[in-house]
Every structure is written in C-alpha cells, then in structure tokens.
Design a protein around this nucleic acid. Structure first.
Lengths: 252, 252
DNA sequence: GCCGGTTTACGTACAGCGTACTGAGTCGGT
DNA sequence: ACCGACTCAGTACGCTGTACGTAAACCGGC
C-alpha cells in the first residue's frame, strides 16, 4: 500500500493511517481536482441504489463520474473510505430541522421512522452501518446528537441513553434488514423470485410437516397477515420504549 | 448453471431453482462422492473462523478438502448454498438438550446467551444470518422451535411470540455485530489496530470539540467503563423482556 | 458378468474485482 | 520562472465465482 511511499510507517509495512474526514478535500499544491468528494459519493449512492452495493466498484464509480479508474484513488484512498462517504451522504438526508416536541417518545419514534425510511430508500445502508466505524460519519453524528437531545429531560444513569439509542437503532436496522433481504435476494438469484419463494416454501412446509418443530409449526400456522408486518414496526419500537421506561428510564 | 443442461427451465434462462436441503446428498446412480456435505461445511467453517468470511472462496474450500475447485460444484451448486451449509453447521452447536425450567424469562435468556456465544465463536455468523433465508436451515429451525417452546405457557396473540423472538434475535445479533466489527476491522486494515483507534479517536474528539454535537459530547464524556459493556447485554435483554411483558405478553 | 447411462472429478477460460506501480501532464508557492 | 507537489491515466497482478468440456469411476438392469 502507501500509494507513493511517503509517510513514515510506524509498524511493519503499513500505509499511513488516516480517516477520510481529516484528509483535506483539496491539497493546496497541485492542479485543482476535477471532481468533488460529494459528487463521487453521490455517484456511488446512485449506483448502489440502482444496482445494489456489489455493483459499486471502483471502476464503475470512476466511469460514472467520467474519470480513469485509478484517478479515483486520489480522492478515495481505499474502497472502505468510499463506503464511508456513501454512509455520510445518505445520513445527510435526515431532516433534523423540525423542533423537538417535548414528548420524548414521539420524538424518538419520529427519528426511528426517518431512519427506517432512509434505509428503505438506500437498501445497502444497513450492510454498511454494520461495520461499526460508519456510525460516526459527520452527518451520522448529527443524527446521534439529535436523538440524545430528544432524551435531554430524562434523568437516567449516563450509559442508559446510549443503550436506548443502540436498541432503537438495532431494532430499526434489523426490521429493515429483514425486509430488504427478501427483496434483495432476488437480484442475484439465477432464477425468478417466485420460483425461489415456491421452492423455499415447499422446503419449509416439508420440514414443518415432519413434526420435529411443533411449536414453530403451531405459531406459523396462524400466519401473519400482510398488514401485520407494517404495524409490527410500531409495536416493536413501542415495546423497546416500554422496556426503557420500565427499567428506570421513565418519565421521572 | 445446470451443469449438463438437464432440467426444463420454466423461466427465461434460469437454472432449476432448488434449496440445498431438498437436494439429496447422494444420487443413487454414479460413483460415490468422495466427500460429505458435513465435511465440506466443516472445512468452510474452519476457514471462516481462522481467516474471516472473505477467505472462504470455492478454491480455498476445495483445497481444504483436497479436491479440484470445480468438483466442489457437484456438492454445492452455488456459493450461497455453501454459506447456508455453514450457518446450519454452526447452528448445530446449540445445546438444546437441557429441559426447560418453566421460567420463560430464564429459558429465553439462556438461549440468547447461547446465541451470543455462538456468534462470538463464529464471527461471520451475523453477516450470513442477515440474509434472511439462512434463518431457516434445519438446525436453525430447531433453535426457533426451542425458543417458542419456552414461551408455550404464555397467553398472547399469535404473532406476538414471533415478534419477541425477532426482537431478542435482533438484540443479540446487533450486540455481537458491534463487538465483532471493532475486532474484525483490524484484519483487513493496511495499518495496525492501535493506529486505527488512535486516528479515529482523534477525529471523533475533534468533531466533538467543535461543539456541534453537545448532547453526544456530554454523554460520551462519561464514557462507559469496560465492564459496563459486558453487563449491557443483560440489561438490554432484560428491557426487551420487560417491554414484552408490559405490552400484554406478561406472565398472565 | 457385462454394458450403458449417470455421476463425479478436474482443468481451462472468462469477466470482473481491488489496487500497486509507472509515467506524463499541470498547477502554485517561492 | 522555476520546480516540487499534485492530478490523471494506463498497465498489470493476483484474486474471485463459475460456465463449459472432457475423462474417469461407478451402479442398476439385463
């Protein structure tokens, strides 16, 4: 690594460690860059929205902005950094302008819904945010801060607010991830989605028919109606907040 | 696909859709296969445990079991199926033999802990189970059934038990995913983990120092002590169960 | 016992990936 | 005006999943 070998490597054979956010977008010296970081991120987001995260290759992004493949590396040292830019670009879509209502439950729910909608708009987002570091891009920090602002009045031990934040995020992410997985699978499949569902349904029915999973069979027999799933989101988050109140994070 | 072109393809240019679990491990006719499905799954798991999920390539797995690369495709039609085998092999490690205690909270917590430990032992597991279909491999079904068995006495609307199951799973997965992400990142990084932490810490401190995220800064200032994180697992699950009880899923 | 059809095994080949490296062109601070 | 720093681009390497063709091994039915 180490594109041009500069920077004294502390450890054996390593590039200089850096975070994309501290690297200046424009270095003073050379010719002015032909593309902005925002434009690159937007191009990557466009590709991922259209053709999935796996379609976001350095070659494809470079082509999208109209540059040579390797030129892209002048803007984005590693592909991971491109992913980080994408997460930040998506996070910039949060609307944090409305004033807080004072009802922390309502405010938190509104944020969770925004989060859900964002992930639906950008189905690749959950996969990237699972990589921990991406939770702390500048615009993601703004979201976190907003979330905590909604909890400001509450008198709870310090770590508890972060734990609620983590639980809400986990719930939303998990909910949307499941939703997406069903749809996203179809993309890479060598056969149609209908065929997949038919075959998997037959397998599952066969397994349940063996009687080895009586409790599961019983529960699945009363299958959830379609509308149920959409409402489950609200029920789930309601329970998370209930649990938060029940264990001391209440309105007190 | 369709190695020798058999099977009438219903839709345009597609292989015959199938689930690995319904495909017989041994076809009656030809020579007996040199490897078992279990051995292949075990090899893949071994590689993933040692070198990460990305190291599990068809070539590498084939080499591990001592066969030609393309021979592997006689056992596993697509790489996705190999992943499914891996999930099932890992799920087989659940110990579901102990009798239920009758205390559903304790039983559920015990299962959640097993789940957490399993994911710690196989850090690639969360990434794969995010792909929806993998939640329904045979051994995974056994886990699901066991979970529902623990809830048998409870009188709640039908979908509610599945929703609790989903929430517990989401909580555990999210918890371990975060834990793993911190450790796993280091593997692919072109510099050391310590350098990464230093650089990211400096960036975060810089951002918080701008005053743009006052609430986040305030909460992070009272940083969680190391021990806190381990206990957060129990607190988090406790709240999930509290929320379940609060909204009608109680002991009644 | 034998034979024909099926299955297994394996090598080659292709398109695509991330990115190290090289060289040429262009700008800005001195 | 210079010249070092920087941008841009192309080529190349090793890796990926897997389509395809061929050779060998096996088994069921006769």
């Amino acid at each position: 690594m180490a594109a041009s070998g500069r920077a004294a490597d502390g450890e054996a054979r390593g590039a200089s460690p850096e975070v994309i956010w501290t690297r200046p977008e424009r270095a003073g010296r050379g010719p002015r860059p032909a593309h902005s970081r925002a434009a690159i991120a937007a191009a990557a987001v466009r590709i991922a929205d259209a053709d999935g995260l796996d379609a976001v290759s350095m070659r494809r992004v470079a082509a999208e902005i109209g540059s040579g493949t390797m030129s892209l590396y002048n803007y984005v040292p590693r592909k991971e950094d491109l992913h980080e830019l994408m997460v930040d670009a998506a996070s910039a879509e949060y609307d944090l302008s409305a004033p807080l209502t004072g009802d922390w439950r309502a405010d938190v729910l509104a944020l969770a819904e925004q989060s859900r909608d964002l992930m639906r708009r950008h189905p690749w987002l959950p996969r990237l945010t699972a990589s921990a570091a991406y939770g702390f891009t500048p615009h993601a920090l703004a979201y976190l801060d907003r979330f905590l602002a909604a909890l400001e009045g509450l008198d709870v031990p310090p770590g508890t607010k972060m734990e609620l934040l983590a639980m809400v995020t986990a719930s939303v992410t998990s909910y949307v991830t499941f939703e997406i997985a069903l749809a996203e699978r179809a993309r890479a499949l060598p056969w149609s989605e209908a065929e997949e569902q038919a075959v998997r349904g037959a397998y599952l029915a066969g397994e349940l028919g063996t009687g080895k999973y009586p409790h599961l069979a019983a529960v699945l027999a009363r299958a959830a109606e379609p509308g149920d799933y959409e409402e489950a989101f609200g029920r789930m988050l309601g329970r998370v907040l209930d649990g938060f109140e029940a264990s001391g994070g209440g309105t007190a």
